[in-house]
Design a binder for these strands. Structure first.
Lengths: 248, 248
DNA sequence: GCCGAGAATGAATCCATCC
DNA sequence: AGGATGGATTCATTCTCGG
C-alpha cells in the first residue's frame, strides 16, 4: 500500500488507499483475519485489464506458480486469461486473510461467471452457490434476454460450519436512481448477502468503489476493512461511512 | 435411432425413441433444419462426493420421507470431464441441424453452468446470455443460498439476425405441484424462452423427458421434433401432445 | 365459499455404517 | 487418496381437508 496508515478510520470501518493486491499483502503480513469477503470486483470490460498490463502484476505477485493456463472459448483469449490470472491472485490473497470456514461473496455478470468461478476454486475456495440479484427491470435487448440481473458467487474457506442462517437465492431490488458510482449496488443487496454472515463480524471489501459494502457492514453492527485504489472515491467513502450509524 | 420411424406423430410433433446422439445423426443425414433448440439436458449435478453423484436421480435429488415417486431417468452421473465431452457432442450435432442464426436454450443449474457454457461455445454456438427461472421460493439451505432458481443458457448458431423479440432475463414461475417428471419445467418457463423465437417455427428437444417443450411448441402454433431415450416416457409424451390444441 | 390446521414438497447434502 | 447405501435434516410455500 502507499503507506500503512488507513486513509479513514472510525469505530467500525478502516479504509485503505492503494492497490487491492498491495494492501492485502500487508494485511496478511499483519496476520489480520476477517470473517467474510463481500466484494464487487471489476467485471473487466477488457479495456483496463489488458495482458501487457497484467504481465507486471503477474511477475510481481506470482507466488507458488499455481496460475494455471486457461482459456475460455469466448472473446479475446488473452483478456480472458489475464482476467483469470488476476482474479486468482486477489482471491488467493483474500483467502489468506479469511478465517477458516469464512465466506466469500463476489458479484459478477453472466459473461464472466465461468472464469470467476474457476478462479474462486483454483484459489482454494469451496464454491457453495450462486445468488441472483434481480433488478426487477432490465434494458430491453433485441432477440436476447434483457439485462435485468447480476450474479453473486458464494464460496467458503474450507468446509462450512453449520450456521443457522438462511437467504433466498433470488433477491429482487430495484437499482438506485441517485447512485454516484457506475456499478453501485443498493444497500439491500449487500444486506441480502450478509444474511449468511453472523453479526458482529469483520468484513473485507478489496474493491470498495462507492463504499456500499462498508456502509452496510457498519449499519448492521459489523466492522469492515475497505480498500480503494482510486483516490477520487476515498473522500466519498469516508463521508458515507461517517454518516452511517452503527446499529446492533 | 432404433428405427427411422417416429414413435408418435401429429400435425405439429414428431417424437423419436432413441439416444439423442443417434437420432440427431440421422436427422443431420436427412438434412433437416430446425429454427431453435429448446432443451433440458441431464445436469449430472448434485453431490460433492462421487458416491452421491452416482446415486439414482430420485435418491440424490429428493429427500427421504418424500412419498410421491417420479419415474427415474438415465445419464445423470457423468463426472466433469465426461460431462463436458458429452455436452460438446450433442451440442455440435444440435448445431448441425439448426438454421444459421437459430437459437439454443439449454437449462442448467449453477454448478454446471461453467462447464455447459464452455461446451456450448466449443461446439460453435455464440453465447448470447443467461436467463434465470426463479421458482419464487427454494429449499432452505443452512448457511447457503436456498435452491430457488435454475439457469438457462441462450446462444445462437452464428451472428443474430435482428429480431423484434424481447424477453425479461428473470422469469418468476412456481413449480407445478402435479408434475410427473422429477425435473419437469412448467409450461410458462418454456413459453418465456419461446418469446425470443418467432412464431410458426420448428423446435428441437433432444431430451424430451415429460414432453413439456413439445407441448409448449405445439400450443403456441409451432412444430417440434422430440427425442427421448427412455421408453417409459414415450407414451406420456404422446398423450400430452395429443391432448394439446395447436393455437395460432 | 372461506378459513385454518396439518401435511406434503423440493434438479440435496452430510454423515454413519456397511461391504 | 475405497466405494456404496441409507437415514436425518432443513423450512417457506403449497396443498388437502375438514369445519
Amino acid at each position: 500500500m502507499t503507506n500503512n496508515e488507513p486513509y479513514y478510520e472510525d469505530e467500525a470501518v478502516q479504509l485503505y488507499n492503494g492497490d487491492a493486491l498491495d494492501v492485502m499483502v500487508e494485511l496478511a503480513r499483519q496476520e489480520i483475519k476477517v470473517d467474510a469477503v463481500v466484494t464487487d470486483p471489476p467485471y473487466s470490460s477488457g479495456g483496463n485489464m489488458r495482458s501487457d498490463k497484467m504481465k507486471d502484476v503477474l511477475t510481481k505477485y506470482s507466488q507458488s506458480g499455481t496460475i494455471r493456463s486457461y482459456g475460455t472459448f469466448e472473446g479475446d483469449h488473452r483478456d480472458q486469461r489475464s482476467y483469470f490470472a488476476w482474479s486468482h491472485l486477489w482471491l488467493s490473497l483474500a483467502r489468506q486473510i479469511t478465517k477458516p470456514s469464512g465466506d466469500l461473496f463476489a458479484f459478477i455478470d453472466w459473461r464472466q461467471l465461468p472464469t470467476l468461478s474457476d478462479a474462486v476454486q483454483s484459489a482454494g475456495w469451496l464454491w457453495q452457490g450462486v445468488g441472483v440479484w434481480s433488478k426487477g427491470y432490465g434494458r430491453p435487448n433485441k432477440g436476447r434476454f434483457s439485462a435485468g440481473h447480476e450474479l453473486v458467487i458464494h464460496a467458503t474457506n474450507g468446509p462450512k460450519e453449520q450456521k443457522e442462517l438462511y437467504a433466498p437465492s433470488v433477491f429482487t431490488c430495484p437499482i438506485e436512481h441517485d447512485k454516484i458510482h457506475l456499478s453501485q449496488k443498493p444497500l439491500g443487496v449487500v444486506d441480502w448477502c450478509l444474511q449468511l454472515v453472523e453479526k458482529e463480524t469483520l468484513i473485507l471489501e478489496p474493491f470498495s468503489g462507492s463504499g456500499t459494502t462498508l456502509v452496510a457492514a457498519k449499519a448492521s453492527g459489523r466492522r469492515a476493512i475497505g480498500i480503494e485504489a482510486d483516490p477520487q472515491w476515498l473522500e466519498t467513502i469516508a463521508e458515507r461511512c461517517q454518516e452511517t450509524l452503527r446499529l446492533f
